[in-house]
C-alpha cells in the first residue's frame, strides 16, 4: 500500500494547497518563475501539508487558514531542498535535474531565497505569536542542524546523542512543527497541540532512522544513488554508529576512510558487507520502532476522529517501510 492511500480523502484539500503553492511562487522573472514551478511540478509527497491538514482536522478546521500554514511549511521545505542541492552538488532530485544543474548555483541561491521569502510573506498573513515563534525557532534549528551535519562529517568518535540531535533538527522538527501549526491554527488546546508536536517529532525521528537504514539495505536502483552513499559523503548515521561497536568493523571503517577524499564507490563494497555482518540494521529498526511506539502513545489522548486514525496509519506505514 502506498502512503498516499492512507490520506486519500484529503485529495480535495491537497489540490487547494497545490493551487495555492503555484500562485504564491509566481515570480516575474521568467527563469525564476520556471525554476520555482519546475520544482513544484516535480511533486513530492507533500507530507508536511498532510500533517498540517490532519492536525487541523482535529480542531475547528478552516481550510483558508490551514492552507496558509501548509503552503508556508512546504515552501520552507522546498527552499531548503534547492539550497541543499548546491551544498551536495546534486544533479538529480526526484529523478529530475536540479535547479543548480539546469541553471547554476547562482540561480539556485536566488530561487531558494525567493521561495523562503515567499513562505514568510505568506505565513505572516496570520498574526499569531505562537505560530511565528515556533516556526522561526524551527528554521534556525534546521540550519544549525545542517551546519552540524557538515561539522560532524567523518567524525568516527561522535556519540549516539549527536546523531539523534542532528536528525531531530534535520527532519523531525519540521514535521513536529507541521503538526503543531495545524493544531494552533485550528484552535486546539495547548496540551493537545503539544501532543501532536510530540507525535510529529517521534514520527520524524523514526522516518529519518529508516531512511538512514535504507541507504545501506536498498539497491542503487531503488535509491537512485549508490548504496552507502551517505557514508561515502562522510555522514555518520545510526547503522554506522551501531556497527562501529564491533571492533573489526570499527577498524575497517577507520582504515577505509583514513584519507576520505580518496575513497571511491568500489571501496564501499567491503564496508557495506562488513556492516551487514553486524546487528546494526536490526538495532536501528528497533530504535525506529521505539520512536514509532512513542508517536502512537502521544496520540492516545487526542480525540477519536478520522484524522487521528490516519495519523496512526501513517505511523504504522512508516514502521513497515522497507524500500
Amino acid at each position: 500500500m502506498k502512503i498516499a492511500k492512507t490520506y486519500g480523502y484529503l485529495k480535495k484539500d491537497l489540490d487547494v494547497i497545490e493551487e495555492s503553492l503555484n500562485k504564491v511562487i509566481k515570480a516575474e522573472h521568467p527563469v525564476l518563475r520556471e525554476a520555482s514551478t519546475d520544482l513544484l511540478q516535480a511533486g513530492g509527497k507533500r507530507i508536511r501539508p498532510v500533517f498540517v491538514l490532519l492536525s487541523g482536522k482535529l480542531g475547528n478546521f478552516d481550510l483558508n487558514r490551514i492552507k496558509t500554514a501548509a503552503v508556508s511549511l512546504e515552501l520552507i521545505h522546498m527552499a531548503t531542498l534547492v539550497h541543499d542541492d548546491v551544498i551536495d552538488d546534486s544533479t538529480l532530485r526526484r529523478g529530475k535535474p536540479t535547479i543548480k544543474h539546469l541553471y547554476d548555483n547562482r540561480v539556485a541561491m536566488y530561487t531558494g531565497d525567493y521561495i523562503l521569502a515567499s513562505a514568510l510573506e505568506e505565513i505572516t498573513t496570520i498574526k499569531d505569536a505562537n505560530i511565528h515563534r515556533l516556526l522561526a525557532q524551527t528554521i534556525v534549528e534546521v540550519c544549525i542542524g545542517e551546519i552540524e551535519q557538515i561539522k560532524e562529517k567523518y567524525n568516527w568518535d561522535q556519540e549516539l546523542r549527536h546523531y539523534l540531535r542532528r536528525i531531530k533538527r534535520k527532519t523531525a522538527l519540521l514535521i513536529a512543527t507541521s503538526c503543531k501549526l495545524g493544531a494552533i491554527v485550528s484552535g486546539l488546546p495547548e496540551d493537545q497541540a503539544n501532543k501532536l508536536y510530540k507525535y510529529g517529532y517521534y514520527i520524524g525521528m523514526s522516518y529519518q532512522i529508516i531512511d538512514d537504514v535504507l541507504d545501506f539495505t536498498s539497491t542503487s536502483k531503488e535509491l537512485g544513488k549508490p548504496s552507502g552513499n551517505d557514508l561515502l559523503q562522510g555522514n555518520v548515521t545510526l547503522p554506522v554508529l551501531y556497527a562501529m561497536q564491533d571492533r573489526s568493523f570499527n577498524n575497517l571503517i577507520r582504515e577505509t576512510f583514513s584519507n576520505p577524499e580518496n575513497v571511491v564507490e568500489e571501496d564501499m563494497e567491503a564496508v557495506l558487507s562488513g556492516l551487514q555482518k553486524t546487528n546494526a540494521i536490526e538495532r536501528s529498526y528497533n530504535l525506529s520502532d521505539l520512536y514509532l511506539q512513542k508517536a502512537l502513545n502521544a496520540l492516545e489522548e487526542v480525540p477519536d476522529q478520522k484524522a487521528k486514525q490516519t495519523l496512526q496509519d501513517i505511523a504504522k506505514y512508516i514502521g513497515k517501510r522497507r524500500s
Binding site: 539550497h83 548546491v86 551544498i87 531565497d113 505569536a129 511565528h132 522561526a136 540550519c143 557538515i150
Partner: peptide
C-alpha cells in the same frame, strides 16, 4: 566554504525572522 556560505545565509535569514517574531 561554499557549503557553509549557503547555510550561513539561511541561518541569518532565520535569525531575522526569530528576532522579529520575539517582538511580534
Amino acid at each position: 566554504s561554499k557549503q557553509l556560505s549557503v547555510l550561513a545565509g539561511d541561518y541569518y535569514s532565520g535569525l531575522y525572522y526569530l528576532l522579529l517574531s520575539e517582538i511580534e
